[in-house]
Design a protein around this nucleic acid. Structure first.
Lengths: 158, 158
DNA sequence: ATTATTATTGAGAATCTATTGCAATAATAA
DNA sequence: TTATTATTGCAATAGATTCTCAATAATAAT
């Protein structure tokens, strides 16, 4: 099943209605593997002349999350950022505090943590969000120039 | 060093000025180990008659993050939530999708992931944010009653 | 101590994100 | 084909955060 078929199935099972607007949104989101936010998605569609109101985009987002097509990845610059899940292998995010760049990387060990957490605490873990932050190779080279490091890196707690 | 001393040091080194308002904010935050958000902090201080304007709280938050005293933990209900770091042992968060409850739990394995990431990709990792989500023991008991589960739990990708 | 400099404060205005009300439209079922 | 009602777009609204600006107060200099 591709993303459109998944959504049609979800819509039918939930007693909702499918619309061309929603399919246009889904198609746009799945064009790339990049993160997106509501505003860029809106502008992107506007430029392509398949303009869709922001209200409709905002109303569609929860449906896409609910149907498992997309997920929230991080909140930045005052708004949420999303990425599509279907067809996009699971990964974590590394955020460079120097240049702001987001780098995806694979990591299977989190599954172990999920499992351990399930067993130790009796939770049913259905997903996770892991973000590492620090400085990327490029910013480390510039060393201290553009690097904004907290003056207090380590604090002695008595 | 306690939180006030850490902040005074940070302020001095950054060429800023310390104020009684900022120290009141810090003291309030460090009174408990709970998560907090700007609005509850504001109301809390207001009730204690040490009222401080929201603008000042908003302006102080980035300084507290920068000085390593607090960190963002999650964005929920339309605003950011924070917790203090100094004196609060590192931990991860489990969010129950059934009742919305946040549960803290200890997990050391993430450090291994940090290390592996540093070595494989040449990053300098300074921190992380791990959030697991799913259903807590209580919600699992109620099984399917209040549980809001996506209709599509697993999707066959061809 | 006193004075000068300028960061900080508080109040409210402004901005930005996200949600909602409503009339018109259009997707589904009958 | 018709009836029902979810969805759309627009505008109004709510809520969070930032900004403006005059008054205040923390530090440095004298």
């Amino acid at each position: 099943m591709n993303e459109i078929e998944v959504f049609r199935k979800y819509v039918k099972e939930s007693g909702l209605r499918n619309t061309p607007e929603r399919e246009v949104i889904i198609e746009e989101i799945f064009l790339t593997h990049d993160h997106f936010d509501v505003d860029t998605l809106y502008l992107c569609l506007k430029n392509k002349k398949c303009s869709i109101s922001k209200a409709s985009i905002y109303r569609t987002i929860p449906l896409l999350i609910e149907s498992g097509l997309i997920k929230e990845v991080f909140f930045e610059d005052g708004h949420m950022h999303y990425e599509h899940v279907l067809g996009h292998e699971h990964h974590c995010h590394f955020r460079c505090l120097g240049c702001g760049k987001i780098i995806e990387f694979k990591e299977d060990e989190v599954m172990d943590i999920e499992k351990k957490c399930s067993e130790s605490y009796g939770f049913e873990v259905t997903g996770h969000k892991l973000e590492l932050f620090g400085y990327c190779r490029e910013c480390l080279k510039k060393e201290g120039k553009d690097r904004k490091v907290s003056t207090i890196d380590r604090v002695d707690v008595d």
